[in-house]
Amino acid sequence: MHGLINRAIQCFYRDTYGQGAWAELVRRLDLEFSEFEPMLEYETDVTLRVLDDMAGALEKDRAVVLEDIGTYLVSHPNVEALRRLLRFSGVTFLEFLHSLDDLPDRARLAVEDLELPVLELREHGPNRFTLYCTWDQPGFGHVLVGVLRTMADDYGALVFLDHTGTDHGVETVDITLFEASFAEGRHFDLAADRERAS
């Protein structure tokens, strides 16, 4: 599993529950390192052990932890860069949804060896969508639910999201867009330094 993904999981835990909580996890799992390096590759097994240990320590389902990670990724100030990169995908939440198919390619443009799940959005009506997420590791759909819910807030859209399960390695997320501009949303400036200044 790519270091960036592992690092994201680590930062989520550290920024939400404290450096001490992360250090304890490292001790419990007897990891050979104290931090994930974002530019290195790790055995997938390590990632799964870290996630399971987190879920155990927090007394939450793994799915809930994954969704929390998704929310963290696009809302915490420490990882603001990612939220900005996602906002480049579309001017409205609808455009953003339609750009999800390109997400793995966008990720690869930024970091060549970063593999993300294959995403496919199907439209059932003007406001009804299903997002199919295919990956060798199940669970990314839950991360997406967290990301989408928070990005909807970011755009000021009102949505209903439902992870409807996994079938043959394909996770399904139902999306209902009630209102595209329900609230003001967060400001997005194309120029990074202007946004920081405002």
């Binding site: 194309l190 120029a191 330094d193």
Partner: peptide, 28 residues
């Protein structure tokens, strides 16, 4: 930055937004 341009200021086929994305992604 200087002119506070937005996505709407570029043609839909213009690659400027993608380029800005790349600049930020590569910097990160």
């Amino acid at each position: 930055r200087d002119y506070a341009l937005t996505s709407a200021d570029f043609a839909a086929t213009d690659l400027t937004i993608e380029m800005l994305y790349l600049v930020e992604a590569k910097s990160a």
